[in-house]
Design a protein around this nucleic acid. Sequence first.
DNA 1: AACATGGTCAACCGCTAGTTA
DNA 2: ATAACTAGCGGTTGACCATGT
Length: 248
Amino acid sequence: MGRAPCCEKMGMKRGPWTPEEDQILINYIHLYGHSNWRALPKHAGLLRCGKSCRLRWINYLRPDIKRGNFTPQEEQTIINLHETLGNRWSAIAAKLPGRTDNEIKNVWHTHLKKRLNKNDGDTKDIDGINETTHEDKDSVIINKTSVQQFSNSINTFDISNNNKDDMMSYEDISALIDESFWSDVVSVDNSSNKEKKIEDDWEGLLDRNSKVYTTYNNSKLYNDDMEFWFELFTSNRRIEEFSDIPEF
DNA sequence: AACATGGTCAACCGCTAGTTA
DNA sequence: ATAACTAGCGGTTGACCATGT
């Protein structure tokens, strides 16, 4: 089986991405999508390999990336999922919207694994849920109730003023946001006012992102973007009067 | 103040699985 | 059936930063 040459040993740039490269990649994907990562850098005018572009987009530039620290609930979810899934980081990431496998992997190796090892000495229950007894202030003590509360909160998004009959799950939203969202909602076709409005919104996002570059590498870069996309998505739902989306 | 050490995380590497011709 | 190719995954690395000595 042939192996694609990686990063074309010659001529390809490596290392940290510059804000200019980020902007080129964002703009290109905005306009043309990313159906072919290998061809993308060439067409976009980037001296990067397709792999590098893909990683950069998936792990950092994607607008639905949730930046910032993991919440105790998210960490507990990772711990629980790791127990059942092992090192299948992408599978774990699939259960944590807005988080990437790379990010989860890093958090596991830098925080959670150590914490579990530490807890191992203090408790018999590695879940740390039932019988955590240590008093380490740096450790997060989570009881069953809080896990349950999180479980409820992460599984349901109320987008209709607390009307329980109209609740949809985060996974449902993620699924809707996925392909159809990018192709239908985030359209760059100028053929309609609605789409023009959305394009303006997208440009607004780009503007916001470019603002970010003044504080490049600040971990709080895109904190608001998930909310932005969620808001955009839900507002689009209102526009469409829910006509195309089956009831949940 | 200077250096050493450890933690964090973005990016890369190498492999596998899936797809296409 | 198989070779060529791409996307995606998990492991690892190394630069950067914070803290300790």
